[in-house]
Simulated assay, not measured.
Amino acid sequence: MEEEQVIRTDLCSSGKEKPQADQLEFGRIFTDHMFLMDFTDDKGWHDPRIVPYEPLSIDPSAMVFHYGQSVFEGMKAYRTPDEDAQLFRPQRNFKRMNHSNSRLCIPPIDEAFALKALKQLIGLEKDWIPEAEGTSLYIRPFIISTEPYLGVSPSSHYKFIIILSPVGAYYKEGINPVKIAVEHEYVRTVKGGTGEAKTGGNYAASLKAQELAEDGIAQVLWLDGVDRKYIEEVGSMNVFFKIDGKVVTPALNGSILEGVTRNSVIQLLKYWNVPVEERRLSLEEVVTAHKDGKLEEAFGAGTAAVISPISQLVRGDKHLEINQGKTGTIAKRLYDTLTGIQYGKIQDPFDWIEKVEDVQQETLKASS
């Protein structure tokens, strides 16, 4: 966009009843409004608007249904003790969305304008941010290809949409270590594929392994798609191992998604002078470290859970228990610090927080 456009607003006539904290499930309930913007080759991105949340009307031949040209992001808005609303590093999410756009041949969005639109939407829907401990407002920006055409080529029409969903605490009884199964048959993606982009096809391809995992297994540990021996991700999260005093995470290699939480964890560890390495890490190195008593902790890192400690690695009939199945000190410190910053309970030394101003509905009606 060469010049910033005005965000048109169309408010719903009556709001939905807001759920109680104990009724919240992830991604089941949505707020009263959503943001939309359209793209066509002749106009570029245009007609930004906030409208009532409702079903989309899309042609059955829209290319997203047939060739999967889509990207999405995930982040949260948090309510502080002072009743303010704030975001955690949203600029990085929109920057990553443009990285995904490039890989999927989707035209880039204006990141600053997208953040402005998000703030306006959240400012309008602030009352939807739940107040109970550990709850938040999940944010799902996404782009889909909408051109009605069955030819295999990049679409010329797109929709950029942001929807909001109040969500409960990921850990209802405190941070909880989980069992992880090492996946040997299926792969998530390979270098040169779409692994470093946040696109729906990556997640569809991961479902089979999770479906086949035995009871009690929370997620699967993905190995690389070529040698089948180097660790990449755990479920839909980045993964970290503390080995002999050093925290090690797989280096970004073209098939691993660059997580915002991953980046934040690395920055915090360096800030605390905890040794941290980004490098290629084999499963056998982890198994050997466990055998030698040097595998001290393991945990996943992502938006939904923030930090998810790993209690066991299940490899066939072998169960590698980590830290006696308990949450490690580094994982707990990271979780407490990240959530403390996100909810405005502790100081933010990195300037990660983005405040959201209240939006009065009367002001929006005047600008509609």
Rank of each mutant, 00 (worst) to 15 (best):
V182P: 08
A169K: 15
I266E: 03
M1D: 09
R89V: 00
S153L: 11
Y53E: 12
I7P: 09
L221Q: 01
D84Y: 12
T337I: 14
R79C: 12
A197W: 05
L223N: 04
P275D: 08
F30V: 15
I109A: 05
N93I: 01
V265F: 01
A85H: 08
P81G: 15
L11W: 10
P55I: 10
D127H: 11
E54A: 15
S367T: 11
H33G: 04
I322W: 06
L221M: 11
T288E: 10
L295A: 07
A21L: 02
L164T: 04
M237A: 14
L121S: 05
I139D: 01
L137W: 02
Y138P: 00
R28H: 12
R228M: 07
E233M: 02
K345E: 12
P349C: 14
S311V: 10
R188W: 12
E196H: 00
K119I: 03
N202S: 09
T40W: 08
G27R: 03
K119V: 10
D41H: 11
G44A: 14
S70E: 15
K16H: 05
V64P: 05
Y230W: 10
N101R: 07
R96K: 06
V6R: 13
I353D: 02
F142L: 07
L268S: 07
L269Y: 00
G74M: 09
C105A: 10
I129Q: 05
S14D: 13
P275L: 11
A218E: 06
I217T: 13
L281E: 05
G123D: 14
S136I: 03
V64L: 13
V182F: 06
I144Y: 10
Q324N: 15
K159R: 14
F35D: 10
S165Y: 02
E54C: 13
S311T: 13
A289Q: 07
V182Q: 07
Y78E: 06
H99C: 02
W272C: 12
K191C: 10
P60H: 07
E73T: 07
Y138N: 02
Q20I: 04
G15S: 13
S255F: 01
Y78H: 11
